[in-house]
């Protein structure tokens, strides 16, 4: 099985690679279209600002490649948000795989949300074998509201999506590579897709 981590200079890809290593899987960090297209599993990380991230994807031609992928794809953090149609951050067009719009947390709460929050999920697929109300590590200022694609939610200024799934695409707002045992189990579940 070949697992790739999409590299577009946006995010802590090293920690993701180490997490896969703990599962005995080599995660190849690459921006090569052919390697990505031919991989069995694609992990699409992300950190930082949405508009510049989309710009970096475009410069490498990855903005057209990613929506065409047929194998399982896991977006993480900003990677998940970029799967959406649009984001308020920098008023940016996303990859349009999910019809949702990413919005900013209101100032009634601290922004960014930073830390471990409890996650309520559909106990299957990505979350198989993971306890309800498990803790995951999150750090973000923008979020996906609840949608038809929501498979897990957390509370921060109300309920919102922390995991989504549509066809072969799924995404998590938290960082599984930084979420201790629960996060590792989620990655393991994804690799079984």
């Amino acid at each position: 099985m070949k697992t790739v981590i999409v590299d577009y200079d946006a995010g802590n890809v090293k920690s993701l690679q180490f997490a896969l290593e703990r599962l005995g899987v080599v995660g190849q960090i690459t921006n090569n279209s052919e390697l990505i297209s031919s991989a069995d599993k694609v992990i699409f990380p992300g950190q930082g600002e949405a508009a510049s991230a989309i710009e970096k994807l475009r410069s490498k031609g990855l903005d057209t490649l990613i929506p065409q992928l047929k194998q399982p794809v896991l977006g993480i953090c900003l990677g998940m948000q970029l799967l959406c149609k649009q984001t308020e951050e920098g008023n940016t067009q996303g990859l349009g795989i999910l019809p949702a719009k990413v919005v900013r947390f209101p100032n009634t709460v601290k922004v960014p949300q930073m830390g471990w929050n409890t996650v309520n999920h559909k106990a299957e697929g990505l979350f198989e074998g993971i306890a309800q109300d498990c803790y995951m590590y999150l750090v973000h200022s923008y979020f996906i509201p609840l949608t038809d694609a929501t498979i897990a939610q957390s509370q921060y200024a109300g309920a919102y999506s922390v995991a989504v799934q549509k066809d072969n695409f799924c995404g998590v707002q938290f960082h599984p590579e930084k979420s201790s045992k629960n996060g590792l189990r989620l990655l393991e579940n994804f690799l079984k897709f």
Binding site: E21, S180, L184
Partner: peptide
């Protein structure tokens, strides 16, 4: 440290 830890 990154290789050893699974927390931030």
């Amino acid at each position: 440290v990154a290789a050893a830890l699974d927390i931030p």
